[in-house]
């Protein structure tokens, strides 16, 4: 098989080099893509190396927000003074993912575009609609400890593995994309798809669309945020369930609440129903419970992951309780 490696001089050049090649992939940190090439899950015939593009800076925006370049390393983003001070939910999410020597390679864009760790997706010997459309889903009726309880379909029950993306979903991040037709902005919560009938499509992007940066809007003064994650071992493991919570309480009343759940769906799951219950309500435990229960009313656990429903509830309530206590 012919194989081509190209290094792009600039973002426009990267998109041009990728346009018209269905088998193209952008290469940044490589920690997911190279693994997939070894496993036989991915066989790109053109790699466009974007790791040296000038997209590796974090800049403060005039409105008080933050612009994160697509090739900023996960470790550098987590260590950035403004992220640590103003967006602790993001710093903690990043630091709870992978290991130190992987976070030094992995990039912002790559983290968003990493693929599910569903064991069947990663095992070439089993049918998988995400890997080979139309072959069936081996997880349904199989081992589903790590699979979805929200928004799944009869074709796929995989979960999105990122921690960082869950925090960014709660922060209303905006993703800047450069494609063959020009620039556009995709809200992070709309970047990833639910599986529906096309589980092979993780996101709304096409192969020649390049993520160039992610913008975080500023948080109003008094806003607190937190990331909580439960996993099968204490470190270096993907989430069973995670919660990113952003909360602002004034005089005991919730004035802003943004919650995203990880490990429960094919995408970072923004808990809008819970937020609706929280907004304008007293910041107390009964309300927190009612809010997350409203969200989980739509949960459809599988045979092996029913535990995720109470786990998500307890984790979210605990995160909100902690944030509302900090407020006092």
């Amino acid at each position: 098989m012919p194989f081509d490696y190209r290094r792009a001089p600039d973002p426009e050049g990267a998109v041009a080099a990728a346009t018209g090649w269905p088998g193209v992939a952008f290469l940044a940190g490589g920690t997911n893509l190279v693994d997939h090439m070894k496993l036989g899950l991915a066989a790109p015939d053109v790699l466009v190396d974007i790791s040296r593009l000038p997209l590796d800076t974090v800049a403060e925006l005039p409105d008080g927000g933050l612009r994160i370049g697509a090739t900023v390393r996960n470790a550098d983003l987590a260590a950035h003074p403004v992220v640590r001070r103003d967006y602790p939910v993001l710093a903690r999410a990043l630091l709870s993912g992978a290991s130190g020597q992987i976070r030094n390679l992995a990039t912002t864009g790559g983290n968003l575009l990493q693929r599910t760790r569903c064991v069947y997706f990663q095992d070439l010997t089993t049918p998988c609609n995400k890997r080979e459309p139309g072959t069936g889903c081996s997880a349904i009726g199989g081992y589903t400890r790590h699979h979805a309880i929200l928004g799944a379909s009869a074709h796929c029950v995989a979960t999105h593995p990122s921690d960082m993306a869950v925090a960014m979903a709660a922060l209303d991040a905006q993703v800047a994309v450069l494609g063959p037709a020009g620039r556009r902005v995709v809200p992070l919560v709309e970047l990833h798809r639910l599986p529906g009938e096309e589980p092979h499509r993780d996101t709304v992007l096409s192969p020649s669309d390049l993520i160039t940066s992610v913008d975080l809007p500023p948080l109003p003064p008094g806003t607190r945020s937190q990331y909580r994650k439960v996993r099968d071992r204490a470190s270096f493991a993907f989430a069973l369930v995670s919660v990113a919570a952003v909360l602002r309480v004034e005089d005991g009343v919730v004035r802003d609440a943004r919650i995203a759940l990880g490990g429960v769906a094919h995408k970072p799951w923004r808990a809008r129903r819970a937020e609706d219950v929280l907004l304008g309500s007293p910041a107390d435990e009964e309300v927190f419970r009612r809010a997350i229960d409203a969200e989980l009313a739509g949960a459809a656990p599988l045979e092996g992951n029913g535990f995720k429903v109470p786990l998500t509830r307890n984790l979210a309530v605990s995160a909100l309780r902690e944030l509302s206590r900090e407020e006092r």
């Binding site: 940190g29 490589g30 020597q101 030094n104 390679l105």
Partner: peptide, 26 residues
């Protein structure tokens, strides 16, 4: 050889990194 054990860790320009999931040419 899949980024899970850390035995291939070196320092790249002074920073620790695994070497099994990254191409030499990069």
């Amino acid at each position: 050889d899949h980024g899970q054990c850390g035995a291939c860790t070196v320092l790249l320009d002074g920073r620790r990194a695994i070497t099994c999931l990254t191409f030499a040419v990069a």
